[in-house]
Structure formats: C-alpha cells, structure tokens
Amino acid sequence: MHIELRDVGDVRVVALTGDLDGKSAPAAQEQLLPLIPPSGSVLLDLSGVDYMSSAGLRMMLLVYRHAQSVSSRIALVGLSEDIQDTMSATGFLDFFVLSDSVDAGVQALAAP
C-alpha cells in the first residue's frame, strides 16, 4: 500500500494505491489516521485501489469515525464499480460524500 499526500488549498488530498485486504488495511489505517487534519477537509483518492475487503471497510469506518471526532470533513473520489458495490451492499456508501473527480471533490470540500 502506497500513500501519497498533497494539499490543494485548504483540502488535503490523500491518494492510496494498492489492494486493501487483511494484510494491507491495518497498516494503511495506521498511516492514514494521523493525516486527517483536525477541523479540516480531506479528500481520499481511491482511484489506485482495485480491491477492498471487509478489512478495508473496517479501515474506512475508523477513518470516518476519526474524521467525525476531530471535526474533519471527508469525501471520496475514484471508487471502482466493484468497490462501490461492496460499500453499497454493506450500507457504507450513504455515509460518504462521493466526487467524480479530484477537482470536484476539492471544490465540494472547500465550499463553506
């Protein structure tokens, strides 16, 4: 799992690359949580993630809770059709803002 970080204006864009499975998700989660800016905005770019198991869902759930607890706003971009299926079947999709592109996500999060 590779994690890349850049700040676009006030929005932190975090791009993940690799599979999120029982092996990689716990490590990704550990790296990801401290990157969520308190009282800020984070756009999680998953366009480099082709696979997400329930271990990845668990990571998403903890990222969501962490963002809530530090009053950060979070949005997702680049979800594959398969990952959207999984997140929809498990009731995860409704709790995240989805964006069609990084630019759109940054704009959505930057809006007051």
Binding site: R58, L61, Y64, Q68, T90, F95
Partner: peptide, 10 residues
C-alpha cells in the same frame, strides 16, 4: 457508521 459494531461483514 458512528454507532454500529465493527465486524461481521466479511
């Protein structure tokens, strides 16, 4: 997601 238990999804 705030309140549900983790697990059971696999």
């Amino acid at each position: 997601l705030e309140s549900r238990p983790i697990g059971g999804l696999g």
